[in-house]
Design a protein around this nucleic acid. Structure first.
Lengths: 209, 209
DNA sequence: TCTGAAAATGACTTATTGGTCATAAAATGA
DNA sequence: TCATTTTATGACCAATAAGTCATTTTCAGA
């Protein structure tokens, strides 16, 4: 993924310019969606001439990939860290993981990313692949292993070993979708909703309340 | 909404042509997404010349609105009918409503619609408004009243009266999103997932299993 | 079969926008 | 300060696709 124009090593000031452009691009991609945004718009937002963009990114798609990559990086790190966090009960771990997932999902970058992948999925399949391989799979595996762990320790009901972990992470997903679609009409309290969801899930998962 | 070119009354054969075009448009909008589809593509799929399209729809946007309207109509009817269906227990009603919602969400029209609203939201705000007012609100109200009904009859735990009904319909939503994004990589069994979700929800909602 | 109106056609026009490149400005360093 | 390289600029080019319209085809009814 990614793609500098020309060479690979970047000087200090080049890095800064590049970041400026990425920041500007993220902002207006988020505001208007990738397709609707003209390179001229990105240039204006970044306070740079159109030609300058092509000094740092070969095409509009390459710019998009750059934006996505920088938006995902922090999530990857967080997920990695979470692997170590083997605190006490499986229940606590699950709650903690859900909250991290919910927080990530609620960020503006993720909102944009979701919008982007949904709208341009087929045309920018590299992005979808990247996201699926690096974020989705490892994320679901973490939930799956927490589930197994809880079943093994007797905390969770045994049938829960066979459940699709997607059921657990569902709340942050539809919350994000709702906000993309209807935020202006009726914004929902993501935390509240995730807690409602979590409560229901725990009532179903735990052997005893 | 909607928009015929020119006049309002349509003859038999005109209606048929119009439907042909709508069917063709739905098919390729679904396949490639609205933005990516050229009017020439629609014409080819409908086995009609490009100019003919403009005899029935003034612009590409008008065509889109036509597609959305015909895609939504059956859902509206179904939701209306469900209001009457006061079968036995609140539990049964809830299960039934969930299954209808899941089935609708899984249809290709809905998939396209979701993709469309998410990607082009700001540019096609009329569609989002229409959907929100006619489908989402009444749908959520139905769930809400089922919930209240179950609490009143003592079937459901009392706290459930205050829960956001979105928690209930969540599963079909994230299932649809998943399929839009990752269907090719790893398709999920929508029915299975909705059942898992439903099971968890019922464990949490019901006073006794 | 003939005729006029309705429907259909597709080459053409026009607006938009991603991408280029000759030129200019700024930085570097001797 | 001047020469050389690096970076920035924005007018321009070419491709694309929405929308038009003069011409042709189809069809109803006499």
């Amino acid at each position: 993924m990614a793609g500098q124009a020309e060479e690979k090593k970047l000087s200090r000031s080049q890095r800064r310019r590049r970041d400026d452009i990425l920041r500007a691009a993220l902002k207006i991609f988020d505001q208007h969606g990738f397709e609707a945004v003209k390179m001229a718009d990105v240039a204006e937002e970044a306070e740079v001439a159109k030609g300058t963009l092509y000094l740092y990114f070969e095409t509009k798609s390459a710019l998009l990939e750059g934006v996505v990559e920088t938006a995902i990086m922090p999530t990857l790190q967080k997920i990695g860290e979470m692997a170590q966090t083997h605190s006490g009960s499986a229940r606590d771990l699950l709650v903690q993981q859900m909250q991290v997932a919910a927080a990530r999902m609620a960020s503006p970058e993720m909102k944009m990313l979701l919008r982007l992948m949904i709208s341009g999925g087929s045309r920018h399949s590299g992005i979808v692949d990247f996201y699926y391989n690096n974020v989705v799979q490892s994320g679901l595996n973490h939930f799956k292993s927490t589930l197994d762990q809880g079943v093994a320790s007797g905390e969770f009901r045994p049938e829960m070993g066979g459940i699709d972990p997607l059921v657990l992470v569902g709340a942050p997903i539809y919350t994000a979708v709702w906000n993309i679609l209807f935020e202006e009409k009726q914004s929902i309290d993501a935390d509240q909703l995730v807690n409602d969801h979590l409560e229901l899930v725990l009532k179903g998962i735990l052997k005893e309340p």
